[in-house]
């Protein structure tokens, strides 16, 4: 039982990464009817941006070897600045990668994402070289024990930040005028300009938000697994894509929920079976789920509109 709860906590953390990344896939699909296959690499780039900003803030706030501000302030600054910078990256990707192809065949726009992904990976290699970087431990790990279950402050923080960001996204889409414009655009982009809203504001905004969330996932992931690698976004990105489909295209709630479900399936499969069989069994289960629910948990047959 203790073992179960320990893994439950691990699955929550693991699912947080999937959920945050899956949201970006689903939002962009809901609005532009295309999957941004560069999204996994935006997550990777976000982690690297996080590395850069973490080192930067550690440097400017330290005198000698001692930091003059508490670690959590540096962490908050790192997350916020990485999200902001990755949002700009997302807008650039939309501007040069997708906007010129908005009326092109869907297949062309789909491979744009793959190419941008490769550019981000190899660009990273070209600039930073092949060596791996380790993410600084911004805050000290504190471990608590309750009834045999070990909690670390980082694990709790990761899950809390992820849930907070999802709640913020929910409010944004539900209550702000931009969120409403996003929903309208996902229903029918042609009618949006009639309301005096430019598609060329709503689309980049969607990319910016999705990329910001992916960057947050990147920083949080690096806190838990502090070795950065230019290919780290490929595997995780594809799996988060699976979560977006499993949740139902365009569904915010679905993407978040499916991200956590994916985390749970993976962790609990590994609990029972040898870890080499983890993905084989986990993704066979997901294949079976999709056979019975081909549109995902919250998906609909004929629409993929952005919804909460």
């Amino acid at each position: 039982m203790v073992y179960f709860f320990q893994n439950f906590l691990n699955a929550l953390q693991w699912g947080s990464f999937y959920a945050l990344i899956a949201l970006g896939y689903s939002m962009v699909y809901g609005i532009l009817m295309l999957f941004n296959f560069a999204h996994g690499d935006v997550f990777m780039t976000g982690a690297y941006i996080g590395l850069g900003t973490a080192l930067f803030f550690t440097m400017i706030f330290s005198s000698g070897a001692v930091s003059v501000v508490p670690g959590w302030i540096i962490l908050v600054l790192t997350i916020l600045s990485s999200m902001a910078l990755a949002s700009i990256l997302g807008m650039i990707i939309e501007r040069i990668g997708y906007r010129p192809l908005r009326n092109a065949p869907r297949a062309s726009a789909a491979i744009t994402g793959l190419m941008i992904g490769i550019i981000l990976e190899t660009g990273n290699l070209a600039i930073l070289g092949a060596q791996r970087f380790s993410f600084p431990s911004i805050i000290d790990t504190v471990t608590w024990e309750a009834g045999g279950i070990f909690f670390t402050n980082k694990k709790i923080l990761i899950v809390a930040v992820a849930l907070f960001l999802m709640a913020a996204l929910h409010v944004f889409i539900k209550k702000t005028k931009w969120g409403m414009a996003m929903r309208a655009m996902s229903y029918d982009p042609l009618a949006v300009p009639l309301m005096g809203v430019s598609v060329n504001i709503v689309a980049p905004m969607t990319f910016a938000i999705g990329s910001g969330l992916a960057a947050a996932a990147g920083v949080l992931y690096s806190m838990a697994y502090p070795v950065l690698d230019p290919m780290m976004g490929v595997n995780l990105g594809w799996k988060a894509f699976v979560a977006a489909i499993l949740g139902g295209r365009g569904s915010i709630m679905g993407a978040a929920l499916a991200g956590f479900i994916l985390g749970f399936i993976e962790i609990f499969v590994a609990m029972i079976f040898p870890s080499t069989l983890r993905d084989l069994i986990a993704y066979s289960i997901i294949l079976a789920i999709l056979t019975f629910r081909p549109y995902g948990f919250f998906g609909q047959a004929h629409s993929a509109q952005l919804r909460l």
């Binding site: 929903r183 309208a184 229903y187 042609l190 009618a191 809203v197």
Partner: peptide, 19 residues
């Protein structure tokens, strides 16, 4: 008709107040 079929009637008119 260029309507957002699954959105409710009130929201249609509310969105038009965007600006």
């Amino acid at each position: 008709l260029l309507l957002w079929r699954h959105m409710n009637v009130l929201d249609h008119v509310k969105i038009a107040h965007y600006s």
